[in-house]
Write a protein that binds this DNA or RNA. Sequence first.
DNA 1: GTTAGCACTCTCGCGTTGAGAGTGCTAACT
DNA 2: AGTTAGCACTCTCAACGCGAGAGTGCTAAC
Lengths: 345, 345
Amino acid sequence: MTELTERQKTLLLLIVRDHIESAQPVGSKRLVEHYRLNLSPATIRNEMAALTEMGYLRQPHVSAGRVPTEAGYRYFVSQMMEQAVLPETVQRTISHQFHQSGADINQWMTLAASILAHQSQGVSVVTAPHIEQVKFKHVELISTQGRQVLMVLVLVGGEVNQQILTLAEPVSQERLSQTAARLNALLAGLTLDAMTALPARSDALDQDILTLILQDIRRSAERVSGEIYTDGLSNVLAEPEFTETEEARRTLKLFGEPATLKELLDRTAASGNVGGLQVLIGGEGMWEELRQCSMVIARYGVPGLATGTLGVLGPMRMSYARTIPTVRFMAGLLSDLVNDTISGE
Amino acid sequence: MTELTERQKTLLLLIVRDHIESAQPVGSKRLVEHYRLNLSPATIRNEMAALTEMGYLRQPHVSAGRVPTEAGYRYFVSQMMEQAVLPETVQRTISHQFHQSGADINQWMTLAASILAHQSQGVSVVTAPHIEQVKFKHVELISTQGRQVLMVLVLVGGEVNQQILTLAEPVSQERLSQTAARLNALLAGLTLDAMTALPARSDALDQDILTLILQDIRRSAERVSGEIYTDGLSNVLAEPEFTETEEARRTLKLFGEPATLKELLDRTAASGNVGGLQVLIGGEGMWEELRQCSMVIARYGVPGLATGTLGVLGPMRMSYARTIPTVRFMAGLLSDLVNDTISGE
DNA sequence: GTTAGCACTCTCGCGTTGAGAGTGCTAACT
DNA sequence: AGTTAGCACTCTCAACGCGAGAGTGCTAAC
């Protein structure tokens, strides 16, 4: 494949940019007028023909303007990747929002999904951090009435689970407190594996509670990894590519189903590393339904301890210039938050 | 207004039912064939003309079949209200799903929204119970490292809030436990108002923590009431009334914005009582954007203590036969759950 | 009270057609 | 050699006309 000349490069970028804005095929005349190029439409046509030949552009029909191919978008994105940074002021605003929200994973995820969707004008998807190494921190047993006991379990990472237990017989608050104190001393900082390997306790109540703690931690590890947060479906409803054909409407429906989104994210993000950004254009052949769409995905968190995925879905025509820096910044921000929560306490 | 004859009643119900299924104007011939009536199309036409005269039906254009007016739908719904009950088996399935989910408000709401949306094939909206009378139950202070303290606050009703405090100076776990014990004794079962009216504590740490508890409870009372859960937007995407006009698409966009949905629910549900079901057809003149839509709304919970709202939005042509009994059943189910949580512990 | 027959109206789908947009090519220009 | 004007060509799209079909209301007979 021959190299692109300097002029072809700028032209290609302009064409993609224009098409992203206008959602319409861009013609030679429009291009000249709109961007005040010191060239005649005829020259542009020649260059466009060359770019079409090389596979960066294509014409929907012979007498329409040009539309970027996947390769065209990919070139455009490769340019974005290098430079695009979120403006300082926006960065500060976002950070601020996070710091004045509560220290609650649920809130963080909702906020992240909301900001991503708003900034990118696409559909955002965020998965809660998957805790790969759960560590015990603290347990509290609070007698309520009769045989019912409220167990509050604190894990390293700030996660707090509460659960109501019903014991075989009433137990005094004093004895509950003693049991909690013994278990706290025994389990402090242990991982799930280490706790599972412990020998059975001699005290029956201790053993019962220990079993329940293990159950709870196992469930929690699974549950948190499964939760998904999404936002911004309405952003994409108005986009012209989704209102027309039946096929497009099926794609749209897919966007509205969190379970499907999660699978999408999991499969594609599996290969990515924390810190890296993946941009999938036109589904990259893997997803038939996403032929018209693009995804910008990143993993965040602390590798080996707790990681999650976040991303934006939109039409292939999405605003990469806004989406890419936002996803990158949010991944960094969430990584910091996870890091603080895990190590900071 | 004259009374409807028995035949006109059955005919009206049939027409509404058929139009809900087919999404198309229903003509006299089709009606006869489809429902094996022992009448000729001409007779039906006469009756239809009468029903049109009385305002229950209308014709989109002179040579199309009839379509129900809002009055027509309202008559149809009034019939539904009396009889429709959710099948026992479905009731059991739903109850089962709730009982095997965790005792977590968040999970309940998500599940409720999901079930509502699935059963009704519309957009479901559920607000978390608004706790009108917050009562203190228990506080726990756990020293972590340095000046950081994890405060776990349990409210009557099973809600558990955790928060990380940073104290002015390090405090031993022992002193924290004493403070917690004193506050637990002092505040047990008190309402927010009663706690606010308490005289200042002599011990500085006690006073600080008390202030924080009050802050937290106030925030929590606001926050929980604000949370909204929704599901099923994708159900409605494919409906023909939303794919055509620009106006309809704006309505659809509205459905995708939780904040707007909440306002919708709040305003309309304010007048309703727990146990009652409201069916708003065609926005009832209040909501310009909802002229094509209907809502089925109910309040649930324990009046005076904690109440919430749940409902289903859909096209005016929605399946009332499925939606109405489902909303009614879910309102009852959630009321029971709230009741159990508040009084049961 | 019910039904057959009929004229009438209106929508919808379809083929036609003309305007407009955009192209590629050729030849002239710098 | 690169650039540009001119031109014929192709294709879409909106508008138009038209005929088929659906459904009605009315009248008259059963």
